[in-house]
């Protein structure tokens, strides 16, 4: 059995690799086709002489066919060498690493906040379906889902940082506690929409389970409401975990805007800066890294089914 499970895991991992490969090709092609002369961009404001251009072209293999260029880029990328940033002139890899901490902390904090608030709220509303609390939370979550993080962020900034002065306005702070303090507002802004989404999907999943026959039968044979709720939650966990996995992609989209709003030096603001500057090597690396994180999360969610859904376990084995 465990060998079959391993085979399933390997198959899924291979599929993820194939997807990443296709994505890298897509990203590379996209930027290859982007208007503008890359060599000229690479030279930046320095003296543009035909010799300099030729040298740059040779250095970056820009005069080779598309596939060769792609291969050259990819073979370096897998070793962590994403080339040189046009804007800073430094290595892209270390630049990314440097920026990762802030983003990971903000996104992680936001994820935690939205799950810790959203899942219990979703369960509470599902159990009290149709009552005032349910309707209030559902209405709030609709507003939350529709609220872009940067608008919420600006309003939070205005109220809590500028108005009340409880939180710092911009920047990252020094030391662990201060840094955490600086991340509270950005994380809350990011968690706002995410949390609303979690409420909606948790509520839907729990309600779907509450309507099942096995709940009626559990009550019909005298099990306590506590036990019935535990039964329901165990079953509802499967769709909830899937959706939480999908949220990672959403988090990365949102973090760009939040970091710009709060002037945080993370990967998100790096995206903005690089795109505006047409810093192609950085953009390529960033997209690939995000794709990697998103696909690996999807893979992890798939594999987590093996643990939480016995039906998938045997289906995986049988296949």
């Amino acid at each position: 059995m465990s060998r079959a499970v391993l085979a399933f895991a390997l198959r899924r991992a291979a599929a993820t690799l194939a997807l990443l490969f296709a994505l890298s090709l897509l990203v590379f092609a996209l930027l290859y086709l982007a208007p503008g002369d890359v060599a000229r961009n690479l030279l930046g404001t320095r003296n543009v002489t035909p010799e300099a251009l030729a040298r740059i072209r040779e250095l970056y293999h820009l005069d080779e066919p598309f596939l060769a260029q792609y291969w050259w880029w990819l073979s370096h990328a897998v070793t962590g060498d994403f080339g040189t940033s046009i804007r800073t002139g430094g290595q892209v890899g270390p630049l990314l690493l440097d920026r990762t901490g802030v983003t990971a902390a903000t996104a992680g904090l936001a994820f935690l906040l939205s799950v810790l608030a959203g899942v219990p709220a979703g369960i509470a509303t599902a159990v009290r379906r149709g009552r005032p609390l349910d309707r209030a939370i559902v209405a709030a979550s609709v507003a939350g889902v529709g609220a872009p993080g940067f608008a919420v962020g600006l309003i939070l900034l205005y109220v809590f940082a500028l108005g009340l002065g409880w939180f710092p306005v911009y920047g990252t702070g020094e030391g662990f506690l201060d840094a955490l303090w600086h991340l509270v507002l950005p994380a809350v802004a990011l968690a706002f929409g995410l949390g609303a989404f979690v409420v909606k999907l948790t509520r839907a999943a729990v309600i779907r389970e509450l309507d099942q026959d096995y709940v009626t039968f559990a009550r019909g044979r005298g099990l306590s409401e506590r036990r019935v709720l535990r039964l329901v939650l165990r079953n509802a966990a499967i769709p909830i975990v899937t959706s939480l996995g999908l949220m990672v992609a959403y988090l990365f989209g949102g973090t760009v805007l939040i970091e710009v709003t709060f002037a945080l030096p993370g990967l998100g603001s790096l995206v903005e800066e690089s795109v505006l500057f047409k810093d192609i090597p950085v953009v390529q690396a960033l997209t690939l890294v995000v794709a990697l994180v998103v696909s690996v999360t999807a893979l992890a969610v798939d594999l987590s089914y093996l643990a939480i859904d016995p039906r998938v376990r045997t289906r995986a084995v049988r296949r």
Partner: peptide, 18 residues
Amino acid sequence: LLLALPSVLLAIVVAGLV
């Protein structure tokens, strides 16, 4: 392929470059 990337991020990249 398209769902593996956050659409806002892709939009930023494509709109910014194209």
